[in-house]
Amino acid sequence: MKPNDAGLDGGPRRFESPVEDAAKPDLKDPRVVLSLLEADQVVAAKQRTRFGRRKLSAGVRLLLWGLRIYVVVMLVLVLISVLRAIHPVH
């Protein structure tokens, strides 16, 4: 059986849930929906919150730029190798 201190999800009980003993939840009831989702899982809540920009250190910026240059150079090399494969030099 569910322990006394357990909530709907098996975690600690945090509030009285309207679906606590329901055999089948009434999902037309917003309280039921909100009791099943986490606070930042509701679409409207996500639209109202942002983690926001993180401050990029010089090391991180260098890493990102380095990898960006790597991708561009490699794409050029891929193009060269494919052209060689399609039109081999005899």
């Binding site: 945090r14 509030f15 909100l34 986490e38 606070a39 509701v42 409207a44 942002r50």
Partner: peptide, 23 residues
Amino acid sequence: RPAHPTTDAAAASPLAPELAGLL
């Protein structure tokens, strides 16, 4: 608003009354 990782149910959030009308 700033987002934070949370495991709180939406029903326990202070925004719950507002969210209930926006599902």
